[in-house]
Amino acid sequence: MTDFNGKFFWYELMTSDPEAAIAFYGDVVGWTTTPFGDAQQGHVYHVVSGSAGQLGGIMAIPDEAKDCGMTPWWGGYVGSADVDADAARLTAAGGSVKRPPADIPGVGRFAVVGDPGGATFMLLKGSSPEGMEAAPPMATGHVGWHELYSGDFAADLAFYTGQFGWSTGDAMDMGEMGSYQLISQTGGADFQAMTGGIMPIPKEMPAPLWLFYFVVDDIDAALERVKAGGGTLLNGPMEVPGGAWIIQATDPQGAMFALVGMRGV
């Protein structure tokens, strides 16, 4: 059983059309889904699985969130041993609580939190003693990279390293765009240990956010599936250190996501 405390381990799409999103990502990334919940009550949560097991879920945007103007969005859950204590600790460190700790029957206790720069993520402590195992690095369909478009680069870097114990690797100079700071949620400072990056939010981005890169076998073939399925390419394909290629896109409902994979020979 992997210890996910302080690490992203579950990824969730809240969308305006869950069935359409399931079809889109099933084709693009190769996910399978399993419904969880009461279909008659309209409370269905679709658990998503990649090549190495479950990794997240897809659900309809809750009515109360829709009334507040929420649009389709990918969010990430960070493991917590004590959601209430962590929410208080993160607030004292410059974060904010956007939804106070609460129980999800049969799932666990969660809270919605913001970092100092304004990006949102969730805390979760599962109610079951049986934990998940981490997927192997770059397992198809799973998250291969985590990227924060930061609203306050210095404060956010200090927040995540100080509060979650993340380590830093090299910082790459991006000129006018600032630095791209490699980070690891699992320890170690060499490139192979890196699990993501933090960069200042580009002027084209409407708000700070975490972007998650899903692993595909062939980036060019996946891009064609994105286009055929009604998605919109925002950037790429672009080669990154290590020989992989990335794209950034929005799905047909408007949620931003990213893909990482090798280029076909």
Rank of each mutant, 00 (worst) to 15 (best):
Met174Tyr: 14
Val28Thr: 12
Lys66Gln: 15
Thr33Tyr: 14
Leu124Glu: 07
Ala222Tyr: 00
Val216Leu: 10
Gln54His: 15
Asp67Gly: 13
Ala155Leu: 04
Trp145Thr: 09
Ala88Phe: 00
Glu64Gln: 14
Leu211Val: 11
Met1Trp: 10
Pro35Cys: 04
Leu209Thr: 08
Gln248Cys: 12
Ala255His: 01
Ala102Lys: 03
Ser49Tyr: 01
Gly57Asn: 10
Thr15Ile: 05
Thr33Ile: 10
Gly76Trp: 00
Thr161His: 12
Gly75Ile: 14
Tyr77Pro: 02
Arg263Ser: 13
Phe153Val: 07
Glu224Phe: 02
Trp166Lys: 14
Gln54Arg: 14
Val28Ala: 11
Ala135Phe: 06
Ala23Met: 04
Pro35Val: 06
Leu211Tyr: 00
Ser127Gly: 15
Pro129Cys: 04
Gly236Asn: 03
Gly254Leu: 04
Gly108Trp: 07
Met262Glu: 13
Asp190Leu: 08
Trp74Cys: 08
His43Asn: 13
Gly37Cys: 03
Glu12Pro: 08
Ala258Asn: 08
Ala81His: 10
Pro208Val: 02
Ala21Met: 14
Pro105Trp: 03
Val44Ile: 13
Thr71Ser: 11
Gly261Pro: 02
Pro116Ser: 10
Gly69Val: 03
Gly242Trp: 05
Gly188Pro: 08
Gly254Ile: 03
Thr168Phe: 03
Phe121Arg: 04
Ala65Glu: 09
Gln248Ser: 15
Leu211Arg: 06
Val113Lys: 02
Gly187Lys: 06
Gly254Lys: 04
Leu209Lys: 10
Ala158Val: 09
Asp103Val: 12
Ile219Lys: 07
Gly196His: 07
Gly242Ser: 10
Ala85Cys: 11
Val215Phe: 06
Gly236Val: 03
His46Met: 04
Pro129Thr: 07
Gly57Glu: 12
Arg99Thr: 12
Glu224Gln: 15
Val107Phe: 10
Arg225Ala: 13
Asp3Met: 07
Thr34Arg: 12
Gly6Ser: 06
Gly53Trp: 05
Phe121Ile: 09
Ile61Glu: 05
Ala39Pro: 05
Gly37Ala: 04
Met205Asn: 08
Gln185Arg: 03
Gly76Tyr: 04
Gln185Asp: 05
Gly264Met: 07
His142Asn: 14
Met174Arg: 13
Gly114Ala: 14
Thr71Lys: 14
Leu223Thr: 13
Phe159Leu: 10
Ala23Cys: 07
Ile183Asp: 09
Gly26Asn: 03
Ala20Gly: 14
Pro129Lys: 05
Ser179Cys: 00
Gly79Met: 02
Met59His: 11
Val240Ala: 07
Ala255Val: 00
Met122Tyr: 09
Gly117Tyr: 02
Leu123Thr: 05
Val216Arg: 03
Leu157Pro: 02
Glu64Leu: 10
His146Gly: 05
Ala65Cys: 02
Ala158Leu: 14
